[in-house]
């Protein structure tokens, strides 16, 4: 049991996809403008990660080694398309603000990375927990980055103004601001890790 919890928890800090593995940075840069986008993207990616991890772990013995990558991609793309259609139908506003980055989850390295590195070698429960942990870790990282960016870039969090008279630092709403924030946070994570070691 303890081992299973570990499988889930590692994605959150020890092997955080964004800050430690540095995977999936492209959507992270793009959608972390606002917290609501970050949550939407996080949930969508977590769903895809869960679904693909489950299915790939389930059929891992049926897929020959030589054609595993195309098979994984088809499975992942299916889940992404399901997510996109559902989002379009039930939350068109979120779909519009995430734009092209929803279909691009297909090529998010976290999803294929976990399929290749974990799900194809481990059983159903462990793959499920791994996918969930990675998804939650990705979502938390997105929320952390986007709350810094949304607050500095527009003076708001989730549309609520926090400090009156604050002059927004527009650069944090731009791609350059995303690079700045992620770079500094990565530096901070590494600094803490070095201190511990």
């Amino acid at each position: 049991m303890k081992e299973l919890i570990k499988e889930f928890a590692k994605g959150i800090i020890k092997e955080n996809p964004t800050f430690v593995l540095a995977l999936g940075l492209c959507p992270t840069l793009a959608v972390s403008v606002s917290v609501s986008n970050a949550i939407g993207m996080g949930i969508a990616a977590t769903f895809v990660l869960l679904g693909s991890s489950l299915i790939i772990s389930l059929v891992r013995d049926l897929i020959p080694d030589k054609i595993r990558i195309p098979c994984y991609i088809v499975i992942i793309a299916t889940f992404v398309t399901i997510t996109e259609l559902c989002m379009k139908a039930y939350s068109p506003a979120l779909n519009r603000s995430l734009g092209i980055y929803v279909p691009l989850i297909v090529v998010n390295c976290i999803v294929l990375g976990r399929a290749e590195a974990f799900a194809c070698k481990n059983n159903l429960t462990r793959s499920f927990l791994d996918g969930l942990g990675m998804g939650v870790g990705f979502t938390l990282a997105l929320i952390l980055i986007s709350s810094i960016r949304e607050f500095l870039g527009s003076g708001q969090i989730l549309g609520h103004t926090l400090v009156k008279g604050f002059e927004p630092v527009f650069v944090f709403g731009m791609p350059s601001g995303a690079l700045l924030v992620i770079g500094l946070l990565l530096g901070l994570f590494n600094f803490i890790k070095d201190k511990k070691a």
């Binding site: 049926l62 897929i63 020959p64 054609i67 195309p70 098979c71 088809v74 499975i75 793309a77 299916t78 398309t81 399901i82 259609l85 559902c86």
Partner: peptide
Amino acid sequence: ILGVICVVAAGLLATVN
């Protein structure tokens, strides 16, 4: 094998669509 996976995926997507 790849064909079977694609057919299943396509069927699923058609339903969702």
